[in-house]
Design a binder for these strands. Structure first.
Lengths: 143, 143
DNA sequence: TTAATAAAGGAGTATTTTGTCTTTTATTAA
DNA sequence: TTAATAAAAGACAAAATACTCCTTTATTAA
């Protein structure tokens, strides 16, 4: 569904969002432990998210990663798009480059529904929406 | 969604099903052209499907691949399972190894629905069901 | 019974994805 | 202004996936 990189990204972003909600910045060391992802790889992924404006970062002591209020209103779909691109939302299930309504693959109509549900679901999930469940241990991030 | 290998597998199996419906066996050369997939790779993939009983094959002249009546009643889910394993149906969207109802990842409940729809859709798609649309050029397989 | 055909099997190569390591740059505070 | 901290950047390394090629085995039919 998502690339592994994207899985790491989503877990990290949720963790950071959760910490930001408590007014805390966090460093990669802390994040990578919290979401059980390789540290340097996580660093690279977050770098990417920062470049794409989905996360904030500050260098030096007291630095770290964070989400602004605005960022925490971004959707999961934005994160997925930033890392994996449009593929999940647009791509043909059978890999046909020019699969379309007019020239559909045999699974096109069935998958259309699924894809649109995935999209809708991800578009409606705000990054900030998961903090509470995490904080109250109703949801988990460790692999 | 599916691995590329699995995309090739599904396209090939649909093509073979379609030919079998017309009483024709087909060789890898023909299949790989029809579904626009690399020939030797397709050969390997079909080998796998044959081993797993989802397709039949015969060596020598007049040989080739085919689906029996019984095989054409298998589901797309069977093909996906044979190639990509259970992951699509079971795996956690965020890659948590022990994501479950009791210890869910933050997206667990949202994804549960999606996954079950994917499964249902694939379980209900019989391999034999696509021949007509292909034959009548209502659906296509070329990448 | 031999030649031709076609899949099976095995041992690779190539590409992409995942992940690491080291150096550089920016920020803070003593 | 210097030492410590922490992210950014860039160049690699490892692993997984995608794909190829060559040899072997089975089948058919002349």
């Amino acid at each position: 569904m998502f690339s592994r990189t994207c899985e790491h990204a989503i877990r990290a972003v949720i963790y950071v969002s959760c910490q930001s909600a408590k007014g805390k910045r966090c460093g990669i060391a802390e994040i990578s432990v919290a979401v059980d992802a390789p540290e340097s790889f996580t660093a690279k992924i977050l770098q990417d998210l920062v470049k794409k404006g989905l996360m904030g970062s500050a260098k030096g002591p007291k630095g770290g990663f964070y989400l602004t209020q605005e960022m925490s209103e971004c959707s999961m779909a934005d994160v997925v798009r930033a890392i994996d691109g449009e593929h999940l939302f647009e791509g043909c299930a059978l890999g046909l480059r020019q699969c379309s309504e007019k020239r559909p693959c045999p699974l096109h109509h069935e998958f259309k529904k699924i894809r649109s549900e995935i999209r809708t679901m991800l578009e409606h999930s705000r990054l900030g929406a998961f903090s509470d469940n995490l904080t109250n241990k109703i949801a988990f991030l460790k692999r």
